[in-house]
Amino acid sequence: MSPLACSLLVLTALLAAAEAVMPQPDCTSAKLGEVTGDVTTFSVDVGGGAVRIPDKCTRPGRKQVGVKIEACLSPESKLKIMPVLLTPSDISPNFSLFKIAVDKIVVSVEQYGEMVTAP
């Protein structure tokens, strides 16, 4: 086999191995309400903490009946750990309070809606 062919074969093997060990993003999901009916799908980027998901499903004649969300750390996301200061005058370290934050979480949202029936 020629040196060029050997090099290409080795490069192909290395690329395949690199793709095989690529870490998958850490994800978790949750469902609330009914996950049936018409679906509206979108995603939002958040930084963690309390997150308000906009209602893109409800409009005249329709109401939201459920939601399914999946939150994943983005591939370029980094966790940050910072000590929490109770007051601006705190000078001694508090070894029990920390804030753990993440740069970017990608939240994939499926909102389920159905027609509102007349009384």
Rank of each mutant, 00 (worst) to 15 (best):
P23C: 15
S92D: 04
G37C: 02
A50I: 13
V10Y: 04
V46F: 11
N94C: 02
T28Q: 13
P3C: 07
K56L: 14
Q64C: 15
G48D: 12
K68N: 09
L79D: 06
L9H: 12
A18W: 13
V116F: 08
M1D: 05
P83D: 11
G61H: 03
V35S: 01
S2I: 00
G33V: 05
M22G: 06
E114W: 02
A30Q: 14
C72S: 06
I69T: 12
D103W: 00
V106N: 01
G61T: 01
K80S: 15
A18L: 15
L9D: 14
V46D: 15
V84G: 01
G61P: 02
S2W: 00
L9N: 12
P75E: 06
K104G: 08
A30E: 14
L15I: 08
P54W: 05
D55V: 01
M1Q: 03
L14G: 09
V35L: 02
A101P: 03
A17P: 01
D90E: 12
R62K: 10
A13I: 11
V65H: 06
V44E: 15
K78P: 00
V35C: 03
A13H: 09
G66D: 04
D38W: 05
P25A: 05
P3E: 11
P60T: 02
V21M: 02
F98H: 14
M1G: 10
K56H: 11
S89K: 00
K63Y: 09
F42G: 04
R52C: 09
Q111F: 04
V35I: 03
L15F: 10
D90P: 01
K99E: 15
G47D: 10
G49K: 09
V51I: 15
I100Y: 05
K56F: 05
M115A: 14
I81M: 14
K31P: 02
K104F: 09
V102I: 15
M22C: 11
T87I: 07
G37D: 01
V46P: 08
G47C: 07
I100N: 06
S92L: 05
V107L: 13
L14C: 13
A13S: 14
L11F: 14
E114M: 11
I69S: 03
S96M: 03
S92W: 01
G49P: 08
S7N: 11
A101R: 13
I69P: 02
V102S: 10
F95P: 02
A17M: 07
K104D: 14
L85I: 07
L79E: 09
V44D: 14
T117S: 14
G66I: 04
T36C: 05
L9M: 13
T36W: 04
M115H: 11
I81V: 15
K68Y: 07
N94W: 00
V44C: 10
P88L: 10
L14F: 12
E114T: 08
L79K: 11
M22H: 13
P54D: 06
T36S: 13
A18G: 12
M1H: 04
V35R: 00
V107T: 07
P83C: 05
G61L: 02
I81P: 04
G113C: 15
V67S: 12
D55H: 00
V10F: 06
V35H: 00
Q24K: 13
E114D: 10
S108N: 12
K56R: 15
G61N: 03
A16G: 11
R62E: 08
V44H: 08
V107G: 10
T28H: 11
E114V: 07
V84M: 07
K31D: 15
F42C: 03
V10D: 04
D55F: 00
